Simulated assay, not measured.
Amino acid sequence: MNKGTVYKTRTQMVADILREKILSGEIVAGEPLRQDALAKEFNVSRIPVREALLQLEAQGLVSFEAHKGATATQLLPAEIHELFGLRALIECHVLECAIDKMTDQDLETAREVLLAFEKAVESGTQVETWSDLNYALHAALYKPAAMPMAMEVIHSLNIKSDRYIRLQLLLTAGIDKAEEEHCELLALCQKRDKAAASALLKKHILEAGQAIHDLLIQQQATRPAL
């Protein structure tokens, strides 16, 4: 946690810290999130902990089960295909709408995010920054479409897939592939080539999902039996 961070509420503090722990993998999928223990850890009452967990449930990062309480959500390999398929479906549509409305300033903003992404990758540290900038680039390209409800759905789907994208960037060759495809995608947007840009984006998202699916299958195969 950044020591300089100032939180408006205890609920926000707990939610932000737990979100980062879940997305970074410090809290693993399926791990129980016990309210009493969390309240003690954060030196707060159970109320802000409960509210924070409900926020994270709405973002798809926490689930509540009867007689079990809250746990960090776990995406099964089969669910990866559905999640990334939904992303491809809506993001390609929004990108096509955005290209018609892109200004030179919109493209420059996306280019600046791309340069920040490349710089962060070259640093070799802080994978959370890679993931944040990866989403920021996509969001910059979609913004001209002016479709706020669609962007809410896209943001939600990206939060659910974020920790798995981090796994892909860290443990596969995904980071080099992402850089190359981001550059190509921006170039196609500059040419206003909607068909080619949409096709590349679909390939970009679905192949990332497949890589993550394969990684999860591999992890399951090598995980010791309990």
Rank of each mutant, 00 (worst) to 15 (best):
D132V: 08
L95F: 06
T73Q: 06
A58W: 02
L167E: 09
I80M: 14
L186I: 13
I90A: 02
L56E: 04
A195V: 13
Q190R: 15
T9S: 15
H155D: 08
A225R: 14
K21I: 02
K119H: 13
E82D: 14
M1Q: 03
Y142M: 14
D16N: 12
G69I: 03
L170P: 04
V49Y: 03
N2R: 12
E112W: 06
T172Y: 03
L86P: 01
V28N: 03
L216F: 08
I165E: 02
L157F: 00
V6H: 08
S156A: 08
D100G: 13
T109F: 01
L89M: 13
E112R: 13
L133A: 02
A15D: 07
M102A: 11
A150D: 12
Q35S: 01
L167R: 08
L206S: 07
S24N: 12
L95D: 10
Q12P: 00
D162Q: 11
K68C: 07
I154H: 02
A78S: 12
Q55N: 08
T9L: 09
A120P: 11
G124H: 10
V49T: 07
V14H: 10
H182M: 02
A173N: 15
C92P: 01
L107T: 08
P32K: 01
R163D: 03
D132S: 12
D16M: 05
V127P: 14
E79S: 10
E26V: 12
L76R: 09
K143I: 04
I22F: 07
A197S: 13
H182A: 04
P48F: 00
E41I: 06
H81M: 07
G4L: 11
V14Q: 10
E181M: 08
L171W: 00
L186E: 07
I99G: 02
I159K: 12
T222Y: 06
E51A: 14
M151R: 03
G174H: 03
A221R: 11
F64T: 00
L89A: 13
E51N: 14
A39R: 07
A58I: 02
I212R: 05
I80Q: 04
Q168A: 12
A211S: 15
T5S: 08
A88V: 02
L157N: 09
R223V: 10
L133E: 05
H67F: 11
N43G: 08
Y7Q: 12
E152C: 02
T129A: 15
A197Q: 12
Y135K: 01
D162E: 15
P144G: 10
N43P: 06
G69R: 05
H81R: 15
I175Q: 03
V153T: 10
Q12M: 05
Q74M: 11
I27L: 13
K8W: 00
A139N: 04
G60N: 07
A66H: 07
A199G: 06
Q210A: 14
C97R: 15
A173D: 15
R50N: 13
I80W: 07
R163N: 06
R166L: 06
L38N: 09
Q210M: 11
A178V: 14
Y135N: 05
A173R: 11
A140D: 09
A140E: 11
K202A: 15
E118Q: 15
